[in-house]
């Protein structure tokens, strides 16, 4: 199939919903995932078999990736998969990050987003306690997504957590070891205001590290370049950044368990989920169950080291796994 057949212009469509916000979204929370879980296992076992059952008629499912390679590929995987299953899917041009994705659900501009659950937690409950267990996180963010008109579905085995990365020759092996090393610390602006990130590293009650200096960097390959060049001695990156291996960096163990679990999980606008019924949930759960951390890493190698485009990488993976 041609992965681009579902692509349309994003711009004009964004004009329309501005005034029709919130009203719809607020009305249809409340749906809980417990009621349907009994059916799921039966279907997850044989995902390819479902291609024969065409989904019921329903609204267009608009999916948009957050604007970095891994998230773009993930969105392509979910979008192309649903498209092949016969759903009416529109894969929008990737844009924004978590805030924009969650706003998209809230404003009914988007019908399907895929996020890292720990990230969702910090975005939806910025002042809540930090949790490192995936199921605990799901229990907190599920109702919060329901409040804004979204339904959180089961998470995938794939994890892309925060990684405290240092050069290969560093003496440290755990984050605690860094306390004595007088390191220069580099991270994105977001990290500097998060208890699970910079605030936790420097908090005397947690890691209590005193960095000799800090540098704010755009999230992405710049982190690796800066670390390699010695401009910084430690960066907060993500586990599945392929450059970590490429440059021979190492990820320090989060010995105090500060970083939250970061499994990926789809969030569907409840209204759309209800329109399609259990079929959509079952199809999405079946896909999520197949995505592993190794897959994420492999995709990132393709997009960020081999410089292939996300859409093609996604098609290939789906074909290789008989999902389309």
């Amino acid at each position: 199939m041609n992965p681009h057949s579902t692509r349309r212009r994003a711009g004009l469509r964004l004009l329309v919903p501005i005034l029709t916000l919130g009203l719809v979204a607020a009305a249809c929370g409340g749906d809980d995932s417990d009621a349907d879980t009994t059916e799921v296992p039966a279907e997850t076992t044989a995902p390819p078999a479902e291609t024969t059952a065409p989904p019921a008629e329903g609204p267009t499912i608009r999916v948009r990736g957050q604007d970095f390679s891994e998230a773009i590929t993930i969105a392509e995987v979910y979008g192309q998969y649903l498209d092949a299953k016969g759903y009416d899917v529109e894969i929008l041009t990737p844009a924004g990050f978590r805030t924009e994705a969650i706003d998209g659900i809230r404003n009914a501009d988007l019908d399907l987003i895929i996020d890292y659950i720990g990230g969702s937690l910090t975005a939806l409950a910025p002042d809540g306690e930090s949790l490192s267990d995936a199921d605990e996180i799901m229990a907190v963010i599920g109702p919060l997504y329901a409040e804004i008109g979204g339904t959180l579905l089961d998470y995938a085995p794939a994890i892309d957590g925060d990684a405290f990365v240092v050069r290969g020759d560093s003496e440290a092996s755990t984050i605690s070891d860094v306390a004595d090393l007088d390191y220069v610390f580099g991270a994105s602006a977001q990290c500097f205001e998060r208890p699970q990130c910079f605030l936790g590293y420097t908090d005397p009650d947690v890691y209590g590290i005193e960095f000799s200096d800090t540098v704010t960097l755009e999230f992405g390959p710049l982190l690796g370049e800066a670390l390699q060049a010695g401009e910084v001695d430690a960066v907060v990156w993500n586990d599945t950044a392929p450059q970590i291996d490429e440059f021979g960096f190492k990820v320090l163990e989060d010995d105090l368990g500060l970083h939250p679990a970061q499994n990926i999980a789809p969030i569907v606008r409840t209204e759309v989920l209800e329109a399609y019924g259990d079929q959509l949930r079952a199809d999405l759960d079946a896909l999520s169950a197949m995505i592993t951390t190794e897959d994420l890493l492999a995709w990132n190698v393709e997009t960020d080291l081999e410089f292939r485009e996300s859409a093609a990488v996604a098609t290939e993976w789906l074909e290789a796994n008989d999902l389309i």
């Binding site: 212009r9 994003a10 711009g11 604007d67 970095f68 390679s69 041009t93 990737p94 844009a95 924004g96 924009e100 992405g220 390959p221 710049l222 370049e225 997009t303 960020d304 410089f307």
Partner: peptide, 16 residues
């Protein structure tokens, strides 16, 4: 998040 040629520039930038 508007398209345009800047999107190509940023997509390249994010991946070096």
């Amino acid at each position: 998040g508007q398209g345009g040629l800047g999107r190509l520039i940023f997509s390249g930038l994010r991946r070096a």
